[in-house]
Amino acid sequence: MGCYHSKRTKETPGYEEPTVLAAETPFTVSEVEALYELFKKLSSSVIDDGLIHKEELQLALFRNKNRRNLFADRIFDLFDVKRNGVIEFGEFVRSLGVFHPNAPVEDKIHFTFRLYDLRQTGFIEREELKEMVLAILHESDLLLSDDVVETIVDKTFSDADLKGDGKIDPEEWKEFVSKNPSLIKNMTLPYLKDITLAFPSFVLSTEVEDS
């Protein structure tokens, strides 16, 4: 009962039991099973090996597997907890759990800190902030003079760097986000509450894709 895909899942590298993942995340067992449907779709879109490769994340985000982007790289790196170049099912569910509407705000703040700490020094540094600003301007085809960019970066950095030591630490980041809650808006995906409707894993899939 309820084991119709157990044979297939046993063969999937990195597969973890939904009951285990549900116990560690805000998801129910049914939601984890629904996420497995999404995971299968994403992890077979370029290389059908049951693992999400960077190209597959890029394809899902941009509809283009070759389009690279600083932020997509950082998202991939944070999801790839084992740092082995692929996202396994357990990593996918645990990472998406942070984006659940019921996930602790602390977890969302921590995730964004790690996202913006590009060089993983334990601090968000001014150069990293400028690099990210330049990346979003490039991505958006927005043109701002270097003077304007410098002014924006300086102002934001001085607002966040309460200790004035030239770097933003996790404590300062938490304080800054509490004053600017919109900074973690992207960290909540309402879709995750309806994931069983979008991917009804309880309906036996025919595995036949429309093209």
């Binding site: 999404l38 985000l61 998202i75 990346a135 979003i136 102002k155 800054f176 994931i195």
Partner: peptide
């Protein structure tokens, strides 16, 4: 005052990146 009174927060600007909106993962 010569200073710009309402500069956009750099992190808000960064948050506008489409890559940081993972809702694309759920699109059919």
């Amino acid at each position: 005052s010569p200073k710009s009174p309402n500069l956009i927060n750099a992190f808000q600007l960064i948050g506008m990146s489409s890559c940081l909106d993972l809702s694309g993962l759920f699109e059919k």
